[in-house]
Design a binder for these strands. Structure first.
Lengths: 170, 170
DNA sequence: TACAATTGATTTGCATACAAACTATATTAG
DNA sequence: CTAATATAGTTTGTATGCAAATCAATTGTA
């Protein structure tokens, strides 16, 4: 019972380290491209799902709609995306990449697809697979009690690209 | 080469999920105790190292000094910690828990040690050990290129409580 | 049909998180 | 001993990130 605590402490500590490392990657991308990690992530996701609703984008990014609104605001200010009010359902806002946004995705695909995680690309495929398995395990165990309840409320809450985590989906 | 990318994508996605889950835990603690996850983390770390310099606290929390100043500001406003200008070196500020801060740590140890990760406590010791091993693996691989260089610049950058990650320390 | 409940996006307020610039103090070099 | 440099902490400005409240539009229900 009580001897779990140091283990939990270590897990959290190590997660914080990983956060830090990924954060540094993100800052590096920001220095090199002028846009932040989350913004890049959003642009990539918009590109893959264009046009996309704010709420769907939030689901795909695992972020709160509020947070996404802020990111979209800043991308719109840089003229990389644009908002379009839906005519079918006037509550809905469709988000699209502008020409400039598309240029960003196309002219530097490695920025969007790879540079974000450039630090990871040097890792061997075998080790990547192992890490992948570890992360699935983490998500499965951590997320079982936490994500599943959400699905009851919002069937759209995704877990999508990598759905073979033992059907948390349905 | 190129087939690494979907794996990397999945890893990042899963990490984001874990972030979200831990974030929810943190919010839950905030609702229950009135102080946030990072604040709780800081209080616990101050308790274990009291009195501690701002810069050392930043190192122990893996955070930027600026960020720590903000957290300390808010803790001071709640009368949980206090600042004391060093007489030896008047640039240094020592941070201590107030009586109220000590009460918080002592009267509710499970809040500090366990509630932060209450969701994890229900997990079996075996599974925890497995997760722990996974995280060490992640940190070892992710961090090898990233943390090591820092040690050259700052010997204090820690990796402390759990130093048996193959001596990244020294 | 009218009214309640729900949904989609936004606004507001706050807490992280960091970089860059700044202040004060201490150390080092010439 | 003085000027340059380095260090410790803070201030300022910006970008996430979320909760709660709000507004508009749609859906469900009586």
């Amino acid at each position: 019972m009580s001897d779990k605590k140091p283990i939990i402490s270590n897990i959290i500590d190590n997660l914080r380290r990983v956060f830090q490392i990924l954060n540094e990657q993100s800052k590096k991308v920001e220095r090199e491209t002028g846009i932040t990690g989350p913004q890049l992530w959003a642009i990539k996701t918009i590109h893959e799902n264009s046009p996309v609703k704010v709420s769907d984008l939030a689901n795909k990014l695992y972020l709160h709609p509020t947070t996404v609104v802020g990111i979209i605001d800043r991308l719109e200010k840089q003229n990389l995306v644009e908002r379009r009010r839906s005519k079918d359902d006037r509550r809905v806002v469709w988000i699209d990449l502008t020409d400039k946004g598309n240029d960003l995705v196309k002219s530097a695909p490695e920025v969007v697809q790879g540079l974000l995680v450039s630090g990871l690309e040097e890792i061997s495929a075998n080790n990547l697979t192992e890490i992948d398995r570890s992360m699935k395990h983490l998500v499965k165990i951590f997320g079982a009690q936490k994500i599943a309840p959400k699905l009851i409320l919002s069937t759209e809450f995704n877990i999508r690209q990598d759905a073979n985590i033992e059907e948390l989906d349905k």
